[in-house]
Structure formats: structure tokens, C-alpha cells
Design a protein around this nucleic acid. Sequence first.
DNA 1: TTGTAGGCGTTATCAG
DNA 2: CTGATAACGCCTACAA
Lengths: 354, 354
Amino acid sequence: MLVNPEMPSLEYQQVTMEDVARACGVTKKTVSRVFAGSPLVKASTREKILEAAKRLNYEFNTLAQNFNAKRSRFIGVATSFVQLLGSSYFGELFKGFAKELNDSQWDFALFDTDTESFNNGEKLAKLYRQRRVDGLLVVAPHTYDRFLETLEQRHVPMIVVGVRPTGQGICSVSCDDARGITLLCEHLYSLGHRRIGFVSGPQYVTTSELRTQAFLEFCRAKKLKCPPEYIQPGFYAIRTGKEAAAKILNTNPRPTAVIAANDLMAFGVIECAHELGLRVPEDLSVAGFDDLPTGAERSPTLTTIHQPVNEMGQKSASLLLDSIQNQHLPSGGNVMDVVLQVRESTARVSRSQP
Amino acid sequence: MLVNPEMPSLEYQQVTMEDVARACGVTKKTVSRVFAGSPLVKASTREKILEAAKRLNYEFNTLAQNFNAKRSRFIGVATSFVQLLGSSYFGELFKGFAKELNDSQWDFALFDTDTESFNNGEKLAKLYRQRRVDGLLVVAPHTYDRFLETLEQRHVPMIVVGVRPTGQGICSVSCDDARGITLLCEHLYSLGHRRIGFVSGPQYVTTSELRTQAFLEFCRAKKLKCPPEYIQPGFYAIRTGKEAAAKILNTNPRPTAVIAANDLMAFGVIECAHELGLRVPEDLSVAGFDDLPTGAERSPTLTTIHQPVNEMGQKSASLLLDSIQNQHLPSGGNVMDVVLQVRESTARVSRSQP
DNA sequence: TTGTAGGCGTTATCAG
DNA sequence: CTGATAACGCCTACAA
């Protein structure tokens, strides 16, 4: 089997359909038919061929098949490595993708949208046109990412996951961020809270803006007082949530509740509260967004919004696969429902709160 | 350009080297030489060809090239999705991989070792033999994973990352887990701690055993009292650390310090301590292992062991790439140094501690 | 420096 | 049901 005993790594498929065909006294086309699952082959011939294939240790050559079919059987997953790769959000999403592709013939290729060559479209130009990938799942692109346009122009089968881009025909699967914030606001409102602070996320994160807007909208609708100091920006990390909270809680009167645009920042808010000697939730209610696994394990456990991330992943992969197999471009914005998770970090406003 | 206006997704490369050649009055072989970067082409011819290629919108067909060369230009990354995909460990490792491959011609394919077809070797049989991937980075395989043997038998260019398998020739890049635990022990010992508890990780995690053994070894060497109740198993999650700590801290005399085999469990230990009314580090020193980003943001900040994860990733990818390009199998165990990160969660043992 | 002939392993076409 | 022939787009070997 080995081409060269010193280089065993060179082992490579040599037995071809031709060989199997010769061994059976048929043409390679017939062998091809058998492996393509064509019904147009006599049962006895088929068996003879399968038997010979096994005996000769034949293995189907997908590299050749894919070359011929002008496809790679790879699905590209593109995202910002720096921002998302190690996050449980990405992990859950990917597990959703994988669930769907598990029994398919496609595998995953991973691309970093942060790299220059990707974001400027140089890499993209080749990626789909040459079928290095047969389609693309773009995870949570930033507002400043330029490549979505390029992809659309090139008619790349593509699903944007996690955000809903403003572009017309772009197909996306996301969750209802605005609704999530509204649910949190209503929850706090029903507990008697009338002064609510908000730690927003970075502007270049598409969903972050939606969350902020929804908060502002709620305040308007309920005519809640919301001075500018009640709204402070963070960058989706614990430390920045803590810093933002320091400003928010330094106001007078201070809010009786704070919503953070993601769980990590909510953790920061709680830490800040503790350092100021405020108890959560007795003196301050705190809520987050994302439903991180650790949020349910911390003390106090965190009230938050659960996104159906796994299902979003599965749905995206399913849409893409369908689009690839049936040769049509996917379209439409799919918005999934979010769920309010009420836990210990929020409580009815009490008399002791000023 | 479009094959069918209703199916724009079918857009595909049609301009070939043949076309470019014809436009220039040369053979496709000459065109081929130009794109292969061969110096054996007259400068004027080269320019003529490049100009024509651009004008005709020619794009090099890698699918054809790879078929011909019997390779895919994909590196496979295999790991347990359930256990690692959403972890910052995996994220950092992957960023290390990517740093190395960024300017290469290889991209990443991702495989889940949890799937039946992968772990039993069925998928693997095709993966390398047909060059669906040209090599494999296997991240933190479990002790019960069977596929490593298969890979070795098939002479797949492969690097095992994060653990050092017992098999002979298998090439690995890992960090010195035992040394890390020893550093923690020495640190605590030097602070006066003589009763140290330990929360171990699951047995099927290869490195987990190394960490436990190193702890036991230290106790033996220093003749520290270490009753069985001081050592409790956890499963690398906050909650399990908390549960284990509950047992450890219920002993009499209780330890003055606890080491957890990873940071998450250390967080759980701290939580348990707080619930028991113990202050960290005044009443109990706590240390972890991994140096999670959040460990430096929590209060108290966590003393832990830093693994050079990013560098491990880069090193692995570099070794693999070299092995692929130079047609030799990699070998040897590469062990990287760990660094002790002393933070707030550990302190000198005090008189108030019994 | 450039060209010719042929091969890689599959599948499509169309005929039998 | 099966076969002969050609195509896919690149590359190698050898020749000029």
C-alpha cells in the first residue's frame, strides 16, 4: 500500500472505478451508477460490483466527484474570531448547525471575517465562485462589515445568523431583540420599578442598537423618567458593565433597577452594586440578556432573556442546505421568539428603596 | 454570466486557462506556468497573459488544481463539540491556529469527535485517505476516544493539542499540567498553608488525571496531611465545584486553602465559601487552573495557572503545516511552560484561621 | 522559453 | 440495462 516506506503519509487512494469495472467485466460507468445509487443497474451486476469493490479495497474519490460536479461539499461559517470564537453563543449556534448537517454530506469550513483579505472581498471572490464553499453562514456580522454587499452581488447562497441586516433580499435568522428588552422592561415595571437604568452595547454590534432603541421606546411609551445618566455604554464585557454601573448608580435619585444589554455586563453591574454596599435584588434589581450558562449558577441567579440559539443554528443550516440542494437563493428574515427567564436578581421594589 | 436568470446562484467559473491562452496566442501550459509562479516565462508573455486574464475575468480553479494534486488544502480541526466548542480555551487555541494559517493556502474544516461516525473511524477512513483534509489537529481528545489509534495506523499527519497521549509516535503540543499544580501548591505552601483541599476534574479528561497526581505527589513530598475528604471530584463546571467544596469545607479541621483543577470549579468553591460565611482570601485561599478571562475580572480576582493556549495553537498549526508541505509525519511531544498568576484569592494563612 | 500529449477519476450524453 | 466517448481544468513529462 505504501508508496515509500520512508514516507508513509503519502498513502493515497489508487484503486479506481476502472479497476473495479475491469474485475467485473463491465464499464466504469456501470460502477459509477452503482455508487451513485442509480436504480438502472441489474441487481446481480450491482452485487458483483459491490463485492469486487470491497475485495479490491476500492474507495470512492470525492475529490474527483466534487471537481466534476463543481462543488466542494463544504459549508462556510464566517464570523469574527476575536469577538465570537470562544463564546458560548457561538458554541451553541455551531452545535445547532452541526445537528442539521450531521447526516448530510457537507462539512464545515471556518473563516475569520476579521482578516483583511476576507473583509475586503478578496478572499470572498474565490470562496464561492470556485466552490471552495457551496454556501455561507455568516454569524453576527458587524454594522461596519463590508462583505455582505459583495456576497449578495455574487449571489452566494448565504444566511446571516444572529442579526437582521437592512439589505433587501438578504436571508437571515435572528431573534427578536427588541421584544426581549420589552419583556424585561415590562417585568420590572410590573414589579413596581419606575426608574430603570440601562447599560447599552457597542454601536457596531447590530443587535445592540435594537436593544437600546427598544428600551428608549418603552420609557417613552410608559412616560418613565430617563435622564441621560441612566443610560451608559459598555462593550459587552464584565468590566465595562461595572464601569457603566458606577456612573448609573452614582445618580440621585438612583434607579431601582438596571438592565444590561448582555449578561456579562449584568454581572459587572451586580459586582458594582456589591461594592457600593447595595444588595441585589433587595436594593437593586438587575437583568441581563443572553442567558449565559453561568448566569443560572451565580448567586444571585440572573434574570435574563433566553435566545433559542441552538434552534437558530439549526434553522439557518437547514435553510442553507435546502437552498444549495434545490438551487435557489434563500431569502426572508426569520425572527425567532425569545423567552423571559425570571430568576433571583430582580424583585419587587421595596419601601427601603428611595 | 448567468446560466439562468431565475437561478443566479448557479454562477460559476467558465473562463479557463484555455481561453486566456487563446486570447494570447499561447498554449494553456504557458498560462499554467504563469499562475504557478514559474520563472520560466518571458516577462512580456507573462504580462500579456496576466492582462488577458484580468480582461477576461479569468479565475484560477482550485477545485481542479486540488483534484489534480490529490489534496484539498483543508486542515481538519477535530474536537468534542459538547465539551469545548463554546469555551474560551477552544477559542484561544483556534485563534492560534488561525494566526499561523492566515497567510497560507489552507483553510479550516471542523469536525465533531462526539459523532458516532467520527469516533468509530468510519468518517475518518475517508477524511484523510481522500484528502478531504490534508492533516488533522485533534484538540483535547478524551481518554476514551478510540480514533487516535486509527489515525496513527493510517499515517495521518496529525497533531494532538492540549494533551499528551500515551501512544508512542503521536505528535502532541500540550502544557505542563503537573508543573502547574506544583506551582500552585508551592505558592500556597510558601504562604503557610499546610491543609490544602483539592477539587479534581473528570477522569476521562486526560489532563485532569495529571493534575490530581501532581497534587497527591506534592502532599507526599511535603508530608502534608491529606485525608480523603479533602479531595473531591467535580466535572469542570461551577456547580460541581461548589458541591465539591461543600464537602471539603465541612471537614474538621477544614483546609485553609483549596485548589480546583480548573477556574470554573474555583469560582464554585468561592461561592460556596461565601455562603458558608467564609471570606476569600482572609478565611480561605482559593486557586484555579486555566486563567479564564473572567477570573481576572471577578472579585476577588483569581490566583490561577496560565497556559499559553494561543501559542500552543500556533505551534501546533506550524508543526502540521510543515509536516504537510514537507511530506513527513510529525512526531514528539512538545510541552509548553505554564505561568503562575498570583491574584487576590490567595493570601498568607492568618491567625484567625484555626 | 514554449508546446504537445496524456493523465487524474469522476460523470454526462447518447446510442444500443 | 449497459457501453463508448468525451468533458471537467489543471498538471507532469518530455520534446522542441
